[in-house]
Amino acid sequence: MPIVEKSLVSVDRVEHLEVEGIDVSGDWNTFLRSRVVTDLDVKIADWVKGQPQGETISRCWQCGTCTAGCCLHTDYGLEEFNPRYFIYLAQIGYEEELRRYASTIWRCVSCNKCVERCPKGVKVEEVIHTIGTYLELSGGAAESPADRFDRAYTENLLGRGILDEAALFRTYERLEGRRTPARELLRLGLTLLKSGRLHTGPFAHRTRGWNRMRKVLEAKLTEDRARRRASVPAPPVPSGRKP
């Protein structure tokens, strides 16, 4: 059914369609996937509840106090960041919809106002991070610029044990496939160097004994990741009577 409400279209709901060799997806005759919820699944909620940080998820009764006070949602105006909604999607197991926010979830700045205000004692901040972890471990989410930045940041930090801003910027630009003009970089870099706020190249800080520390850290991270990945339930089966 062609739709007129463009606001309803989000990239992953557009059906790609070709008519007689002409790609008509995403234009005036955009098609929407069915918006009907056809199944309920306790799998995600059970997994989240089983994690030490996620066990309060089942208390949530969707009052919206968390979202109302959320500094991202309300103060910063990032409407799609809605902790109440993330919790609900996890509770009813609506994975397809939840996945749209796989990256958004990580924009939480952990101010913990939600935890402070929740009338039911839901540790909202921990719960939504656990939901984010579930999505990350169960895979399939498209990487967003924020995800790429996180990756660059982690690599950078693991490299020397301390942040090198210039290197971080270069890595991120490479991952993003874009390039800031050299003149602009030079101007910015020199200003920061002069004011003593940039430590890179010969001036870079180092963490003493980092190589040994790094091995331990990397081993631990790999182990943690493998353990958590193993705990994630299998991908959803088509709806139907359970065996």
Binding site: R35, V36, V37, T38, D39, L40, Q62, Y85, Y88, I92, Y94, E97, S239, G240, R241
Partner: peptide, 19 residues
């Protein structure tokens, strides 16, 4: 073999048809 409950999930603002 099963029942289908048709309703609206008013938190999602979406129709639901769940067996």
């Amino acid at each position: 073999s099963r029942l289908l409950a048709t309703g609206e999930d008013t938190i999602l603002s979406r129709p639901t048809e769940v067996p």
